[in-house]
Structures are given as C-alpha cells and as structure tokens.
C-alpha cells in the first residue's frame, strides 16, 4: 500500500504535470478540428481557439466581472447564513438524541425537495434579485452542512467528553470546546459540498428568473439574444473555473486548519 502510494508522489510530479497538459492539449486540438473541419458547424461548436480568446476577454471585461461579483455575493452570503444556522443546529441535534428523533421525520421530508423546485416560489416571495438567490442558496446549502455536523458530533470520542466533564465543564462548554472542534472537519467537508451546490443553485436561479445580473443571467442574455455561441461557451468556462477555484481554496483552508488530523483531508 505505502510502496504504491509513495512512488508517484516522489518522482511523479513532473510527469504528472506534463501528462495533464498533454491531456488538455489533445482535447482542445480535437475540439478545434471538429469545428474547423465542419464536422460540427462552427455556430454550434465554435473553434476552441476563439472560445479561449473570448474567455480571456471576458475575465477582464468589467461588465462581466460585475455579473461574477453578483453571483459570488449571493453565493457567499447564502453559504455564510447556512453555516451559521446548520452548524449550531447540527451540534444540538447531534448531541441530544431526543431532539434528533423529534426532528427526523420533518427533516426526512424536507431534505429531498430539490432546491431548484423552490425557485418559482422564491421569486414570488423575494422577487428576482439577490434576496431570492440568497434564500435559495441557504435552503440548498443547509443540508450537507447540517448532516455532516450531526455525524461529526456523533463521532465524538466519549472519553473526550468525560475528560471535559471531570474538569467540570458545563454542557454548553463541552458542546463548544469538545464537540464543535471534533465535528469541525466533517462539517467543513459539508461546507465544501454545499459550496458547489450553492453555485449550482445560484446560477440556476439566475437562468430561470432572468435576474438583472449574475453569470447565469449573462449566459442567458447572450444565448437568448441569438448572440455568439463562443461567448456562451466562454461564460460557462468562467463558471467552471470559478467552481474549481472555490474548491481549491476550501481544500487549502481545510488542510491548514485541520493539520492536526493525521489522516489529512480527503
């Protein structure tokens, strides 16, 4: 096991990067030729060279950056609220069996409702702007964080809790100083899952509500205006890059905060 795992890490860095670049290049050349040779018409699949140029242009386009900012604002506020609600709720419901049992039927029925099904309702209640996006993000992000916190709290080593009790910590003290740190790594994984879902929901809401601004609104404006397919691709690529960046940053933060977890972050 260890022999297999260490070999690519030690001497595999350079070949890994080269291979990755080769993979990307092959895909791009393939897509380019399919378009250039007319196998798929250019107005349906634009040449990748153009898409990449457009992507580069978009990244410095202030108008588009405004859209990105709008999406990220709703995303961040919604995710933040979800964390503030889900983590304490998970801590309490994870610690007290009766509370968890009492809420379980309600939770079991609410959780499976796909968040995007609530978009029409959210539009009615909150309008088409940022509030609506935030409300949807909160609902969608709540569940993974909540459940992971509950599982994390259930995993707390009973000896750790007893140790805290012998030092006469109160129930609240044990919750805050033992259960919370114990559950934190799993809760953080929940946040990472929610972060991806939150982006999906934000962009869905923008696409559907025709919000004034946002990446989804941008893509919708360009495509419904009969505009340039290449720009639609470029907008989507930026959305993907944004998703990658978010994941990367969150993983890096987890690695740093939870360095005490020997197993590392999955």
């Amino acid at each position: 096991m260890s022999a297999v795992a260490t070999v690519p890490v030690r001497r595999g860095v350079t070949p890994k990067v080269t291979r990755g670049l080769i993979g990307v290049a092959v895909l791009l050349i393939l897509a380019e030729s399919v378009s250039r040779l007319g196998i798929i018409p250019g107005n349906i699949l634009p040449p990748m060279s153009r898409v990449l140029l457009d992507t580069a242009g978009l990244i410095v386009d202030p108008e588009f950056l405004h859209d990105v900012g709008s999406t990220l604002t709703a995303w961040a506020i919604g995710l933040g609220i979800a964390i503030l609600v889900a983590v304490p709720l998970g801590l309490v419901l994870g610690s007290f069996r009766i509370a968890y049992e009492a809420s379980s039927a309600v939770v079991e029925f609410m959780r499976p409702i796909p968040s995007v099904a609530l978009i029409p309702l959210a539009i009615l209640v909150f309008g088409q702007g940022t509030d609506m996006k935030i409300a949807l993000v909160v609902y969608a992000s709540l569940w993974p964080i909540f459940f992971n916190t509950v599982y994390g709290v259930r995993d707390v080593d009973p000896v750790a809790k007893e140790t805290a009790r012998t030092f006469r910590l109160s129930r609240v003290g044990i919750l805050a100083r033992v259960s919370l740190p114990y559950a934190a790594p799993l809760a953080a994984t929940g946040v990472r899952i929610s972060a991806a879902i939150a982006l999906i929901v934000t962009i869905s809401a923008e696409l559907l509500a025709g919000s004034a601004s946002g990446i989804g609104s941008y893509i919708l404006r360009i495509s419904s205006g009969g505009g340039d397919t290449s720009l639609v691709f470029a907008g989507t690529i930026v959305a993907g890059l944004l998703g990658m960046l978010i994941n990367f940053v969150l993983v890096a933060i987890e690695r740093k905060i939870f360095a005490w977890k020997k197993e590392g972050v999955a």
Binding site: G23, S204, T236, I237
Partner: peptide
C-alpha cells in the same frame, strides 16, 4: 494523470450553466 485536469475542470462546471 492525462485526464485529471480535464475532470477537475468539468466537474467544477455548475451543470445548469451548460443548459
């Protein structure tokens, strides 16, 4: 190694943006 960057990118694209 060959496909990893492609997968990392594609899985990060929020699927509704692809509609």
């Amino acid at each position: 190694d060959y496909v990893d960057p492609i997968i990392q990118f594609l899985r990060a694209v929020p699927p509704p943006a692809l509609i």
